[in-house]
Structures are given as structure tokens and as C-alpha cells.
């Protein structure tokens, strides 16, 4: 049953222009790599279900933002209603790595009073020969900001699933612990519908969602 999910998480994907945000998302949601991709206009929307534990599905609503500066004022408006985010840079483009600070700063200043769980993504890891950012460097930066770091490739489908599911799991844990709560007027986390008729294998879904609301 596709429609049944426990929570909906809204994730935002940010990073410099041409680091491969849309390609990564499309690999994740459509399972294929788009060779040619026009620059994103403003914001695009994607969604996919992720099963984090047997019978527990999370609906991810993924907001793909334009990296281009001219759309920045639009994309800024979307931080507030996101619970998590993937911050991408291109491992073959040092500039995009240097801008990671800036992106984080921008996100922090626009997400108030909420906070976003970020995952740092070093994208295009299939292009090892052209690498300009070492893994250690990136890991260090991620650790400094308390983020996980994952290297991905949309072209070769490396770690794409992992990047999204790890972020989803982290958020799910925070929700379970009550560190993140569902709030009226905030779209970051929403509660789904739990079926009245629960299949025996899925009985777990019943217990732990009520207390959080």
C-alpha cells in the first residue's frame, strides 16, 4: 500500500549551481540518471517513500532548489519548513566546497526558530581523477558542523540511497526521542495515517506514534 506512511519529512537540497542536486534527487526518486539537465528554475518537488524499518515507511518530500544566485530569494523562503537537508558540493570543484560555510550560514539564518538536520554530500565521486577536495578535508568540515559526510555519484548510483536513508533515520530518531515535534503551521514533519487494519507483520507501527503528537 503505497499510500501508508508513518511520517512525512520535508527535505531541502542546497548547494552551488551545477554540483548535481537535481541529478542526485532524480537518481533517488526516479532511479535513473538524466544525462542532460537544464538548470533548475526556482524550486522543484519530488517525493519518495523510504522504509526505514520493516513496516515503517517515511514519505520524503524533497525540495530541489536552484543553485543560481538569482533565485536565492525564492529558495530562502523554503528553509523554514524543512526538517532536514542535503548540502551538496562537487568534489571536482573546490569553489563549491568553499561555499559550504556560506550555505550553512544562510540556512541557519533563515530557518529560525526551527533547525535543520544537515548531511554533507560530496557529489560526483565517480570522477575520482578530477578530485579537488579530499575526503579527510570534507569529513573534518562535516564534523566541525556536526554533520555526517557521504560521497555520492548519481551517474554510477553510489551511496545515493545511503545518503537519503541515513538522513531520514537520523531525523526519525530525533522525532522518536521527542527532540523534533510535529507543530501546527510547520511543514517539516507531518504525521501520516496509520491503517486501522494492520497486517500482522506491521503491528509495530501502532505503538510509538501517538505520544509525539
Amino acid at each position: 500500500m503505497e499510500a501508508i506512511w508513518l511520517y512525512q519529512f520535508r527535505l531541502i537540497v542546497i548547494g552551488d549551481s551545477t554540483v548535481g542536486k537535481s541529478c542526485l534527487i532524480r537518481r533517488f526518486t526516479e532511479g535513473r540518471f538524466a544525462q542532460v539537465s537544464d538548470p533548475t528554475v526556482g524550486v522543484d518537488f519530488f517525493s519518495r517513500l523510504v522504509e526505514i524499518e520493516p513496516g515503517k515507511r517515511i514519505k520524503l518530500q524533497i525540495w530541489d532548489t536552484a543553485g543560481q544566485e538569482r533565485f536565492r530569494s525564492i529558495t530562502r523562503a523554503y528553509y523554514r519548513n524543512s526538517v532536514g537537508g542535503l548540502l551538496l558540493f562537487d568534489i571536482t570543484n573546490r569553489r563549491s566546497f568553499q561555499n559550504v560555510h556560506e550555505w550553512l550560514e544562510e540556512a541557519r539564518s533563515h530557518v529560525q526558530p526551527h533547525s535543520i538536520v544537515f548531511l554533507l554530500v560530496g557529489h560526483k565521486c565517480d570522477l575520482e581523477a578530477q578530485r579537488q577536495v579530499s575526503r579527510q578535508e570534507a569529513e573534518k568540515l562535516a564534523a566541525a558542523y556536526g554533520m555526517r559526510y557521504v560521497e555520492t555519484s548519481a551517474r554510477d548510483a553510489i551511496n545515493v540511497e545511503r545518503a537519503f536513508t541515513e538522513l531520514t533515520r537520523d531525523i526519525f530518531e530525533l522525532v522518536k526521542r521527542g527532540d523534533i515535534t510535529i507543530q501546527e503551521g510547520w511543514e517539516g514533519v507531518k504525521s501520516g495515517f496509520v491503517p486501522n487494519v494492520v497486517h500482522s507483520s506491521e503491528e509495530v507501527t501502532k505503538s510509538d506514534r501517538r505520544c509525539l503528537c
Binding site: 500500500m1 495515517f193 491503517p195
Partner: peptide, 10 residues
């Protein structure tokens, strides 16, 4: 519709 769908899952 989602509510309905989840209600008559069976």
C-alpha cells in the same frame, strides 16, 4: 482520500 485508503486497507 488518504484517510479512506488507510481505513479500508484490507
Amino acid at each position: 482520500e488518504e484517510q479512506q485508503t488507510s481505513e479500508d486497507l484490507s
